[in-house]
Design a protein around this nucleic acid. Structure first.
Length: 434
DNA sequence: CCCAATGATTTCCT
DNA sequence: AGGAAATCATTGGG
């Protein structure tokens, strides 16, 4: 009944604007043409409409019905709709074209990328829960953190989907409700189907903006989750002793060329049980070697002790494993030799092949019991002169440091520090200055 | 709490 | 692409 005044206004307006003084005119009774008769009708109708508020409800209802059934009703309705269209809707209509929302697209893309809105492995919340359980329980090759992350993610996903569903349902309900209402009211108000359509569009837009908020907050949640779990990538855990041992062993036994191939990396990763996941374990190994190389090179003195230790260790291993050490020693020592010299000068593959063949055993073979001293002396020798090393065929081959003199994988930043074997650590202070 | 060690990331270079 | 170098950020020992 709120509509009554409005109805009256508009009809009033129409009457005045379109046919000024129409009512009076007709009441004069002048003119007897057909048109005049119709005008008379319209006048009556308007009159009735205007006085409708004075009547009782029942009467009004009856009148309404009568008006609805009036033969002029559709025409009048159309006129009113038209005018309304021109005055109000056209203004609104101009600016209602929605721009293809970039923001929304971004959100959608992200949700898709994060696997929140994407094709679910299954359907509905039950599947989400199942996925979460699976991730938590049977986490194939991921750390606990990772599975935790996935569980949380699927939780978010579930919430997102239920909310989305709720919104959709609400939107539909509301839309049909409004549509019914408008249709109903179109019997008493000038509401065209077009307008209803437009209204539906407005409603949908409103709801989609709500939806966007939902998406946005979901995205935020995912981001937070990421920052807490995956992006805690800087959160490092130290490798366990065994792992570092294995890596160090490899590093120092390949000191001449500490660049493990992909396969080697994989192998190492496996051995170190850094098998977080196939792909990332190699990265970890690569990181380790990258760090090691740079840090070793930067301050060889500091690593001297460590180097000797691992040299001794590998040597010991080799000797214990293989008896052919002694005989192999001088002739086949190549590995290290290859390392130093051949790395740059000779063909890489030769060196590689040799190394891969007996890389591990070389030290054992050569050094035997007093590995350490030999190592040190050799280093010493090499670091000092190139000529000298020549005379000591084996040693030349041997020492990793030789490389840096040649400009191997390192540019020999601290050659002097290598001075005396026993003073290995002592030399450190000179390095510490670096 | 300070600091060295160290794993990870970033930037630049080849 | 992969490495070197610089840098960041955490860990763990004192």
């Amino acid at each position: 009944m709120d509509d009554q005044p409005r109805l009256m206004h508009s009809s009033h307006g129409v009457g005045m604007a379109g046919h000024p003084g129409l009512a009076q005119h007709m009441q004069d009774g002048t003119g007897g043409a057909d048109g005049e008769g119709r005008k008379q009708d319209i006048g009556d109708i308007l009159q009735q409409i205007m006085t409708i508020t004075d009547e009782s409800l029942d009467e009004a209802q009856a009148r309404k019905h009568a008006l609805n059934c009036h033969r002029m009703k559709p025409a009048l309705f159309n006129v009113l709709c038209e005018i309304k269209e021109k005055t109000v809707l056209s203004i609104r209509g101009a600016q209602e074209e929605e721009p293809p929302d970039a923001q929304l697209m971004r959100l959608d893309n992200m949700l898709l990328a994060e696997g929140v809105s994407g094709p679910e492995k299954g359907g509905g919340s039950a599947a989400a829960a199942a996925a979460a359980a699976a991730a938590g329980g049977g986490g194939s090759d991921n750390s606990a953190e990772h599975s935790d992350y996935r569980a949380k993610l699927s939780q978010i996903r579930q919430i997102y989907h239920t909310e989305l569903e709720k919104y959709e349902q609400a939107c539909n309900e509301f839309t049909t409700h409004v549509m019914n209402l408008l249709r109903e009211q179109s019997r008493t108000r000038p509401i065209s189907p077009k307008e209803i359509e437009r209204m539906v569009g407005i409603i949908h837009r409103k709801f989609s903006s709500i939806q966007m908020q939902l998406k946005q907050s979901t995205c935020e949640a995912v981001m937070i989750l990421r920052s807490r779990f995956l992006d805690a990538r800087r959160k490092r855990r130290n490798f366990n002793k065994q792992a570092t041992e294995i890596l160090n062993e490899y590093f120092y036994s390949h000191l001449s060329n500490p660049y493990p191939s992909e396969e080697a990396k994989e192998e190492l990763a496996k051995k170190c049980s850094i098998t977080v996941s196939q792909s990332s374990s190699n990265i970890e190994v690569s990181n380790w070697f990258g760090n090691k190389r740079i840090r070793y090179k930067k301050n060889i003195g500091k690593f001297q002790e460590e180097a000797n230790m691992y040299a001794a260790k590998t040597a010991a291993n080799a000797t214990s494993v293989s008896t052919h050490g002694s005989q192999a020693n001088s002739p086949s020592t190549p590995n290290s030799a290859g390392s130093a010299g051949s790395f740059n000068m000779n063909s890489g593959d030769l060196f590689m092949s040799v190394q891969s063949l007996n890389g591990d055993s070389y030290q054992g073979a050569q050094v035997g019991a007093n590995v350490q001293s030999q190592v040190d002396t050799l280093r010493h020798v090499i670091s000092q002169t190139g000529g000298y090393s020549e005379s000591l065929a084996a040693s030349q081959i041997y020492s990793p440091q030789g490389i840096n003199t040649n400009g191997g994988w390192q540019d020999a930043p601290t050659p002097s520090s290598v001075t005396s074997p026993t003073e290995g650590p002592g030399s450190v202070h000179s390095d510490t200055s670096n």
